[in-house]
Design a protein around this nucleic acid. Sequence first.
DNA 1: CATTTCACCTGGTGGC
DNA 2: TGCCACCAGGTGAAAT
Length: 281
Amino acid sequence: MPELPEVETIARGVQERVAGDRIVAVWLNRVPQTWKTPRGEQARGLAGRGILGVHRTGKHIVCELGRAADSPHKAQWIVHLGMSGRLLVTTPEGEVHAHTHARLQLASGRELRFVDPRRFGRLEFRRIVPGSGKSSEIEFKAPGLDPLQVSEAEFRALFQGRKLAIKAALLNQRLLAGVGNIYADESLFAAGIRPTMRAGRIPPQRLERLRVALQGVLLHAIELGGSSVSDYVDADGVKGFFQLEHCVYQRTGEPCRRCGKPIKRIELAGRGTHYCPTCQN
DNA sequence: CATTTCACCTGGTGGC
DNA sequence: TGCCACCAGGTGAAAT
C-alpha cells in the first residue's frame, strides 16, 4: 500500500532518472476509470513536453512539465498509485508487465510506465494557466497538511472536537495528507495510543507525542525505502525494508517488541487495525 | 456538516 | 494438485 514513505521514495527515484528528459511518445491503455482527465486529452497534453521535475504531495506523485509546441502553458501529470500502482523507469525492451496502463517514451530512450493490477490508481493531467479560476488549471496540491511539516498547534487543531477514532482521523486525507493504514498503526504504537481513542479526547501532551512519533516513523521509513508488503517496489523495481521494523502492522498474535504480549487485531474504519493492548491505552 | 459504510478491483491465501 | 471463496485497502460517493 503506497503511503507517504513509499510515494516519496518513488518520486525521488523517478526525479533522479527523468528530470530534464522529454516525452516523445505516449501510449495509454483503455481502462476508463484510470483517467481522471479524459484519456485523449491526457495523451495529447503529455506529448512533446519536457519533464522539469518530479515530487510528492500527500500520496500523489506530481511530474512538472514544460511548455509544448502547441501550448504556451506549463502542465502537470499527477499520479496516484492507489493500492497496487507502480511508476517504473525502464528501457523500452524491459518486459511489459500485465496491467500496464501508461507508457511514456522519453527522448533519452527510457520509458516511464504506470502499472496497476487493482486499478485503484488514477492519472490526471493539468495545464497550468496563470490567474485561472478553474481548479483544473491551478497547480495541484494534496488537500490535507503534510505530516512532516505540520506544527504542534496545527496538529492539535486538526483533532479538536472530533468524535471519531484517532486512527480514522489519521487516515482522513483532508486532515493529514499521506498517512495510510501501515503508518497509522505504527505511529499509534510508537505514541502508546489506542487506535480506538476518540481524537478530540486526547490530551495535548499525548497528541504532541503522536505528532513526533508519526514524523519519526515516516522519516525512518523513507530512509529505508518504504515498506514492501505485498508487491511494492520503487522506480527501479527495488523493494524497501521498513516492513522489517514494523511493531504492530500485520503482526497479529506475534509478541509485542516492547512488552512481549500478543499483538491484537480489530477492524476499525473498515480496515485491519493492529495494536498492543498493554502498551497502547 | 460530521461520520460511517460501501463499491470499486485483482492477486494471493487458505480451506477442503 | 486444483478449485474457489474470501480478503486486502485508498478513495469517493452514498447513506446515516
